[in-house]
Computed example of a mutant assay.
Amino acid sequence: MALQVYGIKNCNTVKKALTWLDENKVDYTFHDYKKEPTTLQQLETWEKEVSWESLVNKKGTTWRKLSSEDQAAVVDADSANKVLLNNNSMIKRPLIESPKGIILGFDEEEYRAKLK
């Protein structure tokens, strides 16, 4: 079964992850948030495995562009999901659905352990 990889093609971390997957001949399907926005159902499914806090990328440009009021309003899964649905680029990238669970970001050691 191919992995499902979610992200944005021009994100440097996504590029590193896709390069690693290609070099290690790991089969995957890529879902670009710009072309295929995520759904509430997807967010809720992911949140059964990883916390809503870990899905919100607070280091990225999209988060920093939010007003301090909007940032302060992200206090639980419901409020986070509303923001994430309106700003898919704020979801930690890449997000990989693998047989061994959700993987967030790019960590070569974690990839080696969970994807090979």
Rank of each mutant, 00 (worst) to 15 (best):
T13G: 02
T13Y: 04
V14M: 06
V14Q: 12
K15C: 02
K15Q: 15
K15R: 15
K15H: 11
K16G: 06
A17G: 13
A17N: 02
L18W: 01
L18Q: 13
T19P: 10
T19G: 08
D22M: 06
V26F: 00
D27Q: 15
D27M: 11
T29R: 14
T29E: 03
T29C: 05
Y33I: 00
K34V: 09
K35C: 08
E36I: 09
P37Y: 00
P37S: 02
T39W: 00
T39N: 01
L40Q: 12
L40M: 10
L40D: 05
L40H: 05
Q41M: 05
Q41F: 07
L43H: 07
W46H: 02
E47P: 01
E47H: 11
E47R: 12
K48I: 05
E49G: 10
S51C: 06
E53T: 12
S54Y: 03
V56P: 08
K58W: 12
K58R: 15
K59W: 11
K59C: 13
G60F: 07
G60C: 10
T62Y: 08
T62I: 08
W63H: 04
W63K: 06
R64M: 13
K65Y: 03
K65Q: 14
L66G: 00
L66F: 12
S67E: 00
S67L: 00
S67M: 02
S67R: 06
S68H: 06
S68D: 14
Q71K: 14
D78H: 14
S79E: 03
